[in-house]
Design a protein around this nucleic acid. Sequence first.
DNA 1: AAAATCTTGGAACGATCATTTCAAGATTCC
DNA 2: GGAATCTTGAAATGATCGTTCCAAGATTTT
Lengths: 197, 197
Amino acid sequence: MPDIKHFDPDTALERVEELFWQHGAATTSIQAVATATGLNRSSLYATFGGKRELYLAALRRYRRLRAEPALRLLAEDERGLPAIEEFFTQLVGVRCTGAYAGWGCMIVNAHTGTDRQDPDVQAVLEEHHRQLRDSMHAALETARRRGQLADATDTATTADVLALLAYGVNLRSRAGADATTLRGTVTAALDALRPQG
Amino acid sequence: MPDIKHFDPDTALERVEELFWQHGAATTSIQAVATATGLNRSSLYATFGGKRELYLAALRRYRRLRAEPALRLLAEDERGLPAIEEFFTQLVGVRCTGAYAGWGCMIVNAHTGTDRQDPDVQAVLEEHHRQLRDSMHAALETARRRGQLADATDTATTADVLALLAYGVNLRSRAGADATTLRGTVTAALDALRPQG
DNA sequence: AAAATCTTGGAACGATCATTTCAAGATTCC
DNA sequence: GGAATCTTGAAATGATCGTTCCAAGATTTT
């Protein structure tokens, strides 16, 4: 006998995700969310709960639909070093051009936000970090198997280095870093991994 | 004939700097600043102007007294690779232990903040980035002169890589990253630069 | 068609925000 | 010591914050 929602919650959440991604949680008001989604405050609260839950849902959506697929692709790519190269190329592309240019990575942005102390937010950050390292590690192991790495390279710690490098790219892209410069930087980092490089 | 200030502006600004550094600009209220400094709102506004100017003054103080000295030391250190090694070791130490543990770098934090669009804030970020790269480049040039680098190493782009790595360290430290892990990561990155490494 | 129940719109809540105002207090110069 | 002028404290301003409430509207089941 109940009424049904007059909107698609995930479509609305996508708008919310973009708002929080671009502007951050602290400086995005519920009013701004209502305006951007075209929804009323009542509908927002009834569907998602308060602002905390709304941000958390948006952050999790970002990870699930934007971060995770790219990392899964990286981990399962059988090419080795070229896979890592493409991962970074795509990353720089998304960060510096197109609709999301200058927005950085929502998860990186969350590191400096207010709610970073929130255990639920921390869990997303930690899970993302683990997956980023693991995917990078898997790709490096493939590269090793294919003889693309210098012999002394430790794939585990190198994965950590590349993960931090990715954070750096995401961060600097938010300050308007040049795409060409960033691409040159990651290329140099990857070239250093090659044998007699 | 005028009265003089009943407090030391720079001592107050140091408190403000710590507040903005730890909690960010958006989530630090003027009331919180007044409480932390023991000053009245009137004194704050009369001395520093509004919140924007207050944050800007704190950010510039951070750069001048915390970032710049360390970078100057790095640039002028004649040891080469060991100088870079010590820079990162000190960095990890400050970020993960002591009074400022988990605060990250105020300039890195500013990348994701609200006022990153503020031209004056952007100028501080860009100036810091330039100085970070230049200092790293100078240390790498010293290392090259001393034969500490693999022949193929391009010091300019490698400086970019190490700069992004530093950003990554700062960012992850704010999420509570382990000091030992971070030290291992930067060590691996630097070892990769050495000849036949 | 009518009853039941959820959704929606809009107003309203108290709290807190950055900022201003102004009289009272303090200090320096004459 | 008195006049001049800045600093200081505290209250007040208007705006905006997140959240709640409730009547009106919409939809499904009977």
